[in-house]
Design a binder for these strands. Structure first.
Lengths: 343, 343
DNA sequence: CGAGTCGCCCAAAGCGCTTTGAAGATGCCC
DNA sequence: GGGCATCTTCAAAGCGCTTTGGGCGACTCG
């Protein structure tokens, strides 16, 4: 069933049918009704490719997901982000296309994406500190929004980010207030922008209280459970072990918790943990009684906001770059307590 | 830069340029070379929409992800599955488009997907026991592959599935061999096909040893950490508590472990756990020294296999439905041990 | 009552590609 | 040298839609 057939069926021209379906005013309400009803009945839906060709708009957004080539790890955050974004796309009638790429032939990838013309804009995930993709995309003239930022870049561009620095600053200050002085940072890979910013927040909070950050207490790796376990096990075996851990993800925090248990300590009494919590749907930290004290920021909401921002910029290409900084909530759970008094 | 411009630039017709680029034999090697080089230099890439219109193939696969409407949970398995599938798509030059949908207007959704014509085939996720989508899609005539199966359906269709029944049968038998008699099943939602099959495997293993499955020991919910914690806490407080847990996901197992610790028991000595492990990249159970004894099956590989199967069926639509059953490995980790002797 | 206005509808061009049917150029044979 | 096959290239139609530039009645107004 296509436009031509539908028009023939109704005894109307393609023009009229097309206009009726797309809400143009040049068609009487009566015919519009007749047309829409027939379309529904014969379940006609316009061919997206043909429509795209004719209008020049693809009605689709591309998400480019980097797969860290070393470890081939898919960011667990991604499912929820995409779920949030798709709420916005659904409302606006946009589709979503995915490209998982390693970081090899980046530039060529994006150029192709544009030339092929099946997306009107893209969302960039996992920016590094000086991410070359951003200037490249700016030059390409394809609207884009970054989930995260790139610290080392000056030029303006659209982004949606969580305030990583302030979140980790507050988390660190919170632990300091509880009397902790040896606070370990079990961070993500620090060439990733978010992880870098988290360290900045952590260090600045320490310095404000006159504590020099101790390199021994700082780890940086891909955020897995075994990493948290390993890091915590090693740190707890140190002659001057930390009394608190600050971790970059709930998953890593679970590893740290395991190490604490195994060391015969109790979480929240002997050793405290504060983690960042992306509020993933399947990895809940508990709504009313959170397991971990955490800086919480919904990545799903970030997805929705980023998608809406991108759609705005596609609709109005002249628009000035827009940015949005989301603040994380500090949520008190059972994993923190006053630093044990040394005796 | 489009075909017309490129052809003009080269002083050739569009026909010749198109043929040169698509490897048709009617063009001399010399011109082909001239054309491909110019295309590369001017970074020309054919417009995918126009190409699709002309060829009738979209060169894209749709993934339809159900979002469980009650809890709005995105299946954590999904990122890895998609990563595996995209390996296959990348090789074959296919794109991937995503639709996240609730389960409301399913049929309409699929019909639209086909009418819009921007996918050549689809992959179905999360089948229920009697999944109406499968007969519907068969009727639609759009090639599809199901990740999982629908027990209550007889008709033939393409699927890739893990052998859930045999995996949970083996896991249960393994615990029985260790002397456990009270084995709890902390399962996923049992209207989902995979969870149903897992229970079948669990129950049959018990019956084979003359043990009647005890409804008290069986739970079925969305597989989150807090669910595992809650279920285990309650079960451990029972007058006749289980000595072993069988859980449907690593995440749930983490919750169970937390409950065990909190009850002052030791995992692997007082209480055993066997879990299913989808081998997610970010949630590793440990390669060499697995934390949990687990039935392991890589969901990423399942994604690759499903994608390859779908591509075969798109290339050759007459092909008979194909199925593939993957066997999980039983991997021994530190979470299991002989049942504590009652005294 | 004729000119102008408005409401409704249509034919046809064009989006960028593939593909069919045909034509010009070249080389071979008799 | 004419006929024929072979190689290489081309013009044009068509994929399914939108959109431009009218056209045709019916209605209003002076």
């Amino acid at each position: 069933m296509n436009l031509k057939m539908l028009a023939a069926h109704l005894g109307l021209s393609q023009t009229t049918v097309s206009r009726a379906l797309n809400g143009y005013p040049e068609v009487s309400e009566e015919t519009r009704k007749r047309v829409t009803e027939a379309a529904l009945r014969l379940n006609y839906a316009p061919n997206a490719r043909a429509k795209g060709l004719a209008t020049g708009r693809a009605m689709a957004i591309g998400h480019v997901i980097p797969i860290s080539t070393q470890h081939e790890i898919v960011n667990p955050v991604f499912g929820d982000f995409v779920a949030g974004a798709s709420e916005a796309y659904l409302k606006a009638g946009y589709d979503m296309t995915l490209s998982l790429t390693g970081d090899e032939d980046e530039a060529e990838n994006y150029r192709r994406l544009k030339a092929k013309g099946n997306v009107d804009g893209i969302i960039l995930h996992g920016p590094k500190m000086a991410d070359g993709r951003i200037p490249f995309l700016t030059g390409l003239g394809l609207p884009f929004v970054v989930h995260g930022r790139a610290s080392d870049l000056d030029q303006p561009y659209c982004w949606v980010d969580m305030n990583n620095t302030s979140a980790f600053h507050r988390a660190t200050a919170f632990l300091l207030d509880l009397g902790h002085r040896r606070i370990a940072l079990v961070n993500g890979l620090e060439f990733m922008d978010f992880a870098h910013r988290r360290r900045i927040g952590y260090e600045s909070a320490l310095r404000e209280r006159g504590i020099a950050p101790d390199p021994v207490l700082m780890r940086s790796e891909e955020m897995t459970e075994p990493y948290g376990y390993r890091a915590a096990t090693e740190l707890l075996a140190h002659p001057e072990p930390p009394t608190a851990f600050l971790t970059s993800s709930l998953i890593t925090a679970l590893g740290v918790r395991r190490a604490i248990h195994e060391a015969g300590k109790q979480m929240g009494r002997d050793i405290s943990i504060v983690t960042h919590d992306d509020d993933l749907s399947y990895l809940s930290n508990g709504r009313d009684l959170p397991i971990f004290t955490a800086t919480r920021s919904s990545v799903r909401e970030a997805g929705r906001i980023a998608a809406e921002m991108l759609l705005r910029h596609i609709a109005d290409p002249g628009r000035a770059p827009e940015t949005q900084l989301l603040e994380a909530q500090l949520i008190i759970g059972g994993s923190t307590g006053p630093a044990p008094t040394q005796h």
